[in-house]
Design a protein around this nucleic acid. Structure first.
Lengths: 233, 233
DNA sequence: TCAAAAGTGTTATGAGTACACCCATGG
DNA sequence: CCATGGGTGTACTCATAACACTTTTGA
């Protein structure tokens, strides 16, 4: 098999924008870059695509390496390809954004990679074009979460309505009416009320809810509104 | 400057999914592949990213080379990266989808590239993973056009409401109530009624409309609905 | 008993949908 | 004069948004 002639080969990397929510603020998981150039500066977690991998696989591998987590919400975001984005050698970066339950992320590995959570309001200066990647990821998160029940991925399996509302308020940097929010969320039939309460944040305690995974999968993509909604039954 | 060690370099290409609308059907512009392997089979228009280009620039170049058009609606879609998607040599493909006014596309160049419009219902077998790319582009088109006034890009500068409705009906493979459609479209305030009519498709003739480009740019991104809409004034 | 957060119902407004007839014109 | 496609209005239903008080309980 002859190869394609007279074409430039280049490096291909994956970078992950990893979101978490600690109950009060949206956060991003960053690492201190381990290799030259820019060694020691803050960076997204990334790595080169290996010969046997596609980009999705590489992203999963990298995410697992950093957090130990599998089955995480992961979605390809955008490919950054400026010829000079990495000053050492041309590298194309396929970015992914990930939503993880911050409480499942064990600190164990953070020392190895010098990983740290940063509130989105206090992101340090990042290498290369990583700040642009973060900006795009944040926009996409807001966009998509407005249309699909996405933010549940940031919460533990059991969560309360006030927690959920708080999360939405963080993402959109605003506040919602509690009654309307509750009604809207419950009307999706995506949540199942549990018998027990979270007594952590109030004396009265707030009921836990869990996702109904059947409905979740089935209704994830059906949130559109410009096209006239066909009669439901 | 030392290079990164022990990493594989690979080819990076761009492929364009080009949509057009001829008044009756949505169509895709395909070319007959000019090089081995798979020479002569139908394919998306594409090419390798050149040393001085980023992917956007490469896509614009390729689109201009094929159609002669500039200022076309072009958006990065997804990056395909399977290790064996091109059997000759590993090639990563950054795909773009483009919406063009089919009437502005002059046939002049089609001979040079063996280009041809195919109705979406009659797409031939394509090389590599190009069918998957087309499928994803079609889904994205439907998704995005339901939320943003995107389909105008497929129409001439002056168009009629029946033409517009017909286009939406093609994209969503359904039919809409004429009165409701008109009301909804006009309520966006995106259209400006012209004095003249298109007499091409009826005896009475249908009024032309043009996009109000100010409103178009300003309102393109503001079509969401889950987050409570703030009071308009 | 009080402070702090959880939970709940009603009303008014606007958007979406279903639906049917008249208009203008070229042949 | 009639066939063809263009253009328009109304009534009903449902979703949204605004709004305030009661409940629980640990300190």
């Amino acid at each position: 098999m002859t190869k394609y002639q007279n074409q430039t080969r280049l490096l291909a990397a994956v970078d992950c924008i990893i979101f978490g929510f600690d109950g009060n603020a949206l956060k991003l998981l960053l690492v201190q870059r381990a290799i030259q150039p820019e060694k020691g500066r803050w960076s997204l977690m990334g790595g080169f695509i290996q010969p046997a991998e596609d980009a999705d696989t590489a992203a999963l591998r990298i995410l697992k390496k950093l957090t130990g987590l599998e089955g995480v919400y992961l979605e390809q975001l955008h490919t950054f390809s400026g010829p000079h984005r990495d000053p050492i050698e041309r590298t194309l970066s396929v970015t992914y954004f990930a939503l993880i339950d911050i409480h499942q992320y064990e600190k164990q590995l953070s020392d190895e990679y010098h990983a740290e959570w940063f509130p989105l309001t206090e992101i340090p200066s990042l290498i290369f074009d990583h700040s642009e990647m973060v900006k795009m990821a944040r926009e996409k998160l807001r966009y998509k979460a407005a249309l699909h029940p996405l933010l549940f991925e940031l919460l533990p399996k059991k969560f309360t309505l006030p927690q959920l509302q708080n999360l939405y308020e963080c993402v959109y940097d605003t506040s919602f009416d509690k009654r309307n929010f509750t009604r809207k969320v419950l009307s999706t039939r995506l949540l199942v009320k549990q018998k027990d309460k979270d007594k952590g944040s109030s004396k009265k305690g707030a009921f836990f809810y869990k996702l109904d995974n059947r409905h979740y999968k089935a209704h994830f993509h059906s949130f559109l509104n410009i096209i006239p909604n066909p009669p439901i039954k």
